[in-house]
């Protein structure tokens, strides 16, 4: 996508973080930036505090499993600004053998459970998360159900309360 068609938020992000922003696009009207995972917390905190961005709501976080691609996993953040009334989507790619990314709980406390859910469903590890336990599945569950290589019809024994 040509440089001049970028939205102000994406332009500012590229100006500030340079190489840490891998690519950007605004397809379907959604501003999107793919960033390097090493600087994710720094980028998110910038987006929250910068006077032109002011993304005070972390609306959603999820993982996506692109099985067969490398890197395999993607973490997707959806942010919203109350004052500016704009949205942005931030994504970071993670390798299968090292699906680790820094936790953004320090930036928005409300993202806590979303990270737990992404960990539960995809096995993505959020480093520095205060309580990274399973959230929808039970503690004894084996595997991560939303991964593409987890069979849809697979059954596991339900477990009772611990003795």
């Amino acid at each position: 996508m040509a440089e001049e068609t970028k939205s102000p938020v994406l332009r500012k992000l590229v100006e500030t973080f340079g190489d840490a922003v891998v690519s950007t696009h605004s397809r379907f009207g959604d501003d999107t930036a793919l960033v390097r995972r090493e600087r994710i917390v720094e980028i998110l905190a910038f987006l929250r505090d910068d006077p032109d961005c002011l993304f005070d709501f972390a609306m959603d976080l999820t993982g996506v499993d692109y099985l067969g691609e490398e890197p395999r996993f993607e973490v997707v953040y959806h942010l919203y600004s109350l004052e500016k009334k704009h949205r942005v989507r931030i994504k970071a790619r993670l390798h299968e053998d090292d699906p680790v990314i820094d936790s953004a709980v320090s930036v928005w406390p409300g993202i806590n459970w979303y990270e737990r859910e992404a960990c539960d469903m995809y096995g993505i590890v959020f480093r520095g998360h205060p309580n990274l336990k399973r959230i929808l599945m039970y503690e004894g569950f084996v595997g991560h159900p939303l991964r593409k290589d987890y069979p849809k019809a697979k059954r596991q024994p339900t477990v009772g309360p611990e003795e």
């Binding site: 397809r27 379907f28 959604d30 999107t32 609306m59 959603d60 999820t62 996506v64 997707v76 959806h78 919203y80 949205r87 989507r89």
Partner: peptide, 20 residues
């Protein structure tokens, strides 16, 4: 092919669908 996030104001708050 593509990805979208679409949000509506449901009775309880923002109901968002992220679709790939």
């Amino acid at each position: 092919a593509g990805e979208v996030y679409s949000a509506t104001e449901a009775a309880n708050g923002e109901l968002g669908f992220y679709i790939v």
